[in-house]
Design a protein around this nucleic acid. Structure first.
Lengths: 142, 142
DNA sequence: CCGGATCCGTTTCGATACTG
DNA sequence: CAGTATCGAAACGGATCCGG
């Protein structure tokens, strides 16, 4: 007689809706790797410097895919390789990512290049445009 | 011989730094309650609709306070009451909050008033100014 | 009543070893 | 390379209790 825990309550608040998917320590870091650092493979995410475990990474990638934030496809050139890519919904997180980076750099001790943070603040729209352009360019080869 | 888990690895990435504090399902919801909904007391957070447990809420408030995002003070009028308030560092999360709300409203099913979301997109700077002004006004009475 | 703290079962996380 | 399997540790969460 294992008593089940009731499902998490859902509110219609968009902030809550977003946090249902992104409210953990790893998901947004994977999105960051894809969006800002050009990482695309399981191994590259693993080497990101934060030390995520393989099972957790696999789990989060599956959830991100299930939520339509990333897509997963085998490399036609090298069948061992799997390439992850942000969807339209995923790249739409760019403004969130920018603001999080700016807040973190402003209020915490970080090793971020001051110049890149300055650009995120002062040339916000331009940086966003560049991120999207880069993402679209990468999509060409897919 | 209880083997302890090694401490979480820290990278200098500002996104990671921010997620150390905000990378869970509840912390940002509490900030939202303070920032957007004018909630200030333990009881009001509890009634927020998402059903947080009292022990979790107490834990998150303590962490947010330890991280300098909220302050805590007893109500001089009613000694039973405790008022929480965003710090400068906390109100600086407004741009993050806005972008999260916009993303959630755009890509998930939510009950957010379309008009308020439209304003967050089209009149971003004005909305941010209003949030800060309201926060400063509330501070007067403290 | 308000703002928690404690207890304790359930669930998730996470390090490591292992597999296709 | 890209993941599973395992299993102990830690976090969560519901109920309940407590000091003011």
């Amino acid at each position: 007689m294992t008593r089940k825990r009731p499902p998490k309550r859902r509110s219609g608040c968009p902030v809550n809706a977003a946090l249902e998917m992104l409210g953990d320590s790893w998901s947004l870091l994977i999105v960051r790797d894809l969006m800002l650092f050009g990482r695309k493979t399981f191994r590259e995410f693993l080497a990101s410097g934060e030390g995520i475990a393989t099972n957790i990474l696999a789990d989060r990638l599956a959830k991100l895919e299930a939520n339509g934030i990333v897509t997963r496809q085998r490399d036609p050139e090298d069948a061992r390789r799997v390439r992850y890519r942000l969807t339209e919904k995923g790249i739409a997180l760019a403004p969130v990512m920018l603001e999080v980076a700016v807040w973190g750099a402003t209020h915490e001790k970080t090793a971020a290049p001051p110049e890149s943070i300055r650009r995120m603040k002062d040339e916000r729209d331009r940086v966003l445009t560049e991120i999207r352009a880069k993402w679209e360019a990468e999509g060409e080869g897919a």
